[in-house]
Nucleic acid binder design. Structure first.
Lengths: 108, 108
DNA sequence: GGTATAGTTGGTTGACTTGCCAACCACAAG
DNA sequence: CTTGTGGTTGGCAAGTCAACCAACTATACC
């Protein structure tokens, strides 16, 4: 089952949309439920225009969707499994920590 | 359980190392078992120096590890769960396809 | 030693990303 | 209709990334 080049490009676009500390922080927050831009802005501590752009990157990638309510815009995860993905990323980090430990103990 | 800014940065680094079509293609190939740089070069169809740099990005992020055997260097996945991650990315793509369908049928 | 092969590293160039400010749009409430 | 608030968009400066070529390292084999 060969995967086409176009498909890899689409996947890369989605993954790229997750590949930023502030965006990860927002996704983490959104895993608890929808949040307005103002809440996310306070959370990440950046300019609201910056946060808005981050959100539009993720929206464009299909990771989040929005809903306007009065003056506020609420964002939520469109595909909750994104959260599980983090488990594997943490596994990579644990592996790395383990390797570093071994290096340190072999030097010590 | 609040996650620190540093932790988000580390996770983002790992995710960023996956966020490229050629690198995804290589990870996919490596899920079948280790491959030498020459095989991966042929697979992605880029200059060998480009492929080598992609691999070093992933190695630096802890995604792959390498092993030298004679003239060749073999790379393999360090944390196989990376592959499962793709399942979720595909879910995002399916959701997106579904939404587009709805838009098209509502227009038609 | 000399030569060939497999990879890595350095350097350059063009393209993309990020973050902020400023300007703008949309809704709500006087 | 004006004013205020919440978001978005445009634009710029700084930084990062990707691809190739060229130069280099490392191993193998003669």
């Amino acid at each position: 089952m060969s995967t086409s080049k176009l498909e890899y490009e689409m996947k890369a676009k989605i993954i790229k949309a997750l590949a930023h500390p502030s965006r990860l922080m927002m996704v983490d927050a959104l895993s608890e439920g929808e949040k307005c831009v103002c809440e996310l802005t306070e959370l990440v501590g950046a300019d609201i225009s910056t946060v808005s752009k981050h959100l539009s990157v993720m929206k464009n990638a299909g990771i989040v969707e929005d809903r306007k309510a009065g003056l506020q815009v609420f964002y939520r995860l469109r595909v909750p499994c994104i959260i599980k993905f983090f488990g594997c990323i943490e596994a990579v980090m644990r592996e790395e920590a383990k390797t570093k430990e071994q290096i340190i103990s072999s030097v010590g």
